[in-house]
Amino acid sequence: MEKETAIFTRELTRIFERGGEKIRALDNVNIEVPEGIIYGLLGPNGAGKTTLIRILATLLLPSSGFAYVGGYDVVREPDKVRSVINLVSGGERAGYGILTVKENLWFYSQLYGLGIREGWEKIEQLAELLDMKDFLNVRLNRISTGMAQKYSLARGLLNDPDILFLDEPTLGLDVGAARAIRKIIKAWVHQNQNKTILLTTHYMAEAEELCDLISIIHEGRIIATGSPTELKHRVSKEVIYKIEVKNISEEDMGGLKKEEAGIVGLSTSYDAYSNVLSIRLVMDTSDVSHIIRYIEKLNGRIISISKVEPTLEDVFLKLVGVGLSEY
């Protein structure tokens, strides 16, 4: 059976005016998300991910273009859109702090029209799914960041939405808590075949692990869409190198003439503790001699050079020229 389209946008544009200046947060965005998948919107901070989610969740009107969620127009039929969606934002603790987690959830269960007993039962089910039983009766202002994110996720699942928007769901979480949240997201989609998730993230590994389909968004534009494998295939002709260097700074690498060296994309990250600069290169040649000469000229000491398997980071590097960490 052919899958229905859960989310559809055409030429969706949003312009903000700040201090007389017009900022194009979304620029002719076209996406088509089939139901029953986790769709990832990957991009750096300020790329337009949250703006898109706000429009799709009926919190913001577009400047032009169209957006349909669950078959409903977000501008003309916001009430119908709201009946099939829910939204979870990462890094926030939205709720009344003096009420317990359970009480906050019960309040929302009632707003969503669940019966009084049905609401309590749903909360028990979600507590089981999200492993929340230990802190269900704790006040919201006394729980940890990871617990708060589980609470937010539970709130987002209360109405059993057909389409769930997750805006940076693991933002600010430690590795363990982020892993737990990702596991829950995967479990929920696998248990509910027709449910769709639109997830925004700037974590490449998260997008790669969770998403069936990914769009890379940069400066308000969708610059690539495909499955993680399809996207990585875009750098199949390039060679990816990881070079570790000492005694050289990130700024020093700015002087490298990329075209001469055959560099398509370059990103750096500096570890102050070990004084090691990690350089990731997407190259259209396997010859790195030009780069080695450049590093040696700056008295840099090369620790290691290795060819690595492409990741979504390299796709972004190739498409934009710099890594996500540069933003």
Partner: peptide
């Protein structure tokens, strides 16, 4: 104070 207006907005008609 509570950052819940947007959630209230989408959960109540």
């Amino acid at each position: 104070h509570y950052n819940i207006l947007k959630y209230t907005y989408i959960s109540f008609p």
